[in-house]
Design a protein around this nucleic acid. Structure first.
Lengths: 198, 198
DNA sequence: GGCATGCATTGATGTATGGTAAGAAATTCA
DNA sequence: TGAATTTCTTACCATACATCAATGCATGCC
């Protein structure tokens, strides 16, 4: 079977060698979540990072008005977690849920410790991922501060063309911080302009 | 001279011992920037983190429309840096500038390496700071996605009461993602409601 | 196949925030 | 201290996006 994506990921992205891989690979477990199933609920402490073997996840918060705000999507070869909750051992502020039937690899602190001990390259890669995460959050803040709904949407489809097809529109709207109706109008407007350019 | 804040910070916050402190403290340099002076410009690679001994800094971007968006403030005992630029050795997307005459301690990678080698506690603290940074960015995204201008402002003055007094209003507005005019109106509205409660 | 359910679109209208412009207040600096 | 400059406020109007409600369009399900 299994975890082929994860293994490939460790080798080609994190630079873990074949030999190291064998020593590391006692540990991680995989698990299947059905569409709509929760991987993490608000108030729970997040004990894992989830590596997506196959499928699609989202994380989101619910505000005092009862509105969902999508924080992040994760499809194949992406990680999903609440780093803060995991690191500080605090109840999480958000939910993680499967958008499609999804196979994930459960990564706990012990695995990361072990892998980092065995493979210096992995440790380095992990650090790098953390920095990348910050860069990504920074960029998102910038877009939310400055860009119109249309620009944010264009940025999204440019960055995540695959997700644009797999994720329901109302979730994309939620990620962008607008209503589904507004997104529909933005799309209409874009379509119009593309058919009759300039 | 001094760097008293920085030393105190290392001891009481990062848990560095007196003895370790002496071994570490060959290195860091301090520098004074005048009000309005730039510590980092867009396009430059950020080689330092700046620890604020005394004074006040801001980091900001300028979008295609020429509008500033303030990313972060840093007053006494805070760090300011472009982590992404420093880590990836890439040109920075943003500017760092002194809002007041400001004394900073220049922290480069070598210092952090050295301090982390000498003091395990420092290494740990550094990791913790990184995670905190992520948590902070996450929270900001959430506010930008969901909260009104008023709520964002209330959150700001609650979190940074000291800054509210020291920072010009138009900069707070920029941080919140609204215009100075709008912030002025929000404040007026709040004042009205506070004088005639409920 | 028919019906329920969830999602997308559309139109009418509401609201929060933006833009502009002018003057008041505060701060800076010679 | 007074003039220059910056910041803040206010009023009026413009706009982007939200809200509400109706309809259309799939999809899944018994």
């Amino acid at each position: 079977m299994v975890l082929q994506n994860f293994k490939t990921y460790l080798q080609s992205r994190a630079g873990v060698t074949e030999e190291e891989l064998h020593r590391i690979f006692e540990i991680p477990q995989s698990k299947i979540f059905e569409k709509g199933e929760a991987l993490l609920n608000k108030g729970d402490v997040c004990h894992h990072a989830f590596f997506v073997e196959k499928g699609l996840l989202r994380s989101y918060t619910i505000d005092e008005m009862g509105k969902e705000h999508i924080i992040q999507f994760a499809s194949e070869n992406w990680f999903m977690s609440d780093r803060s909750s995991a690191y500080f051992n605090e109840p999480s502020d958000f939910y993680i849920e499967a958008i499609e039937d999804t196979t994930v690899v459960l990564i706990d602190k012990e695995f990361i410790e072990l892998a980092a001990t065995i493979s210096a390259s992995f440790r380095q890669y992990n650090e790098r991922a953390l920095q990348n995460h910050i860069r990504h959050l920074q960029k998102r803040i910038n877009l939310l501060l400055g860009a119109t709904a249309e620009k944010r949407y264009l940025d999204f489809i440019n960055l995540y063309p695959d997700l644009t097809l797999r994720v329901p529109q109302w979730m994309i709207a939620s990620y962008l911080g607008i209503t589904p109706e507004s997104l529909s109008r933005v799309r209409k407007e874009l379509a119009k302009r593309n058919f009759k350019p300039h």
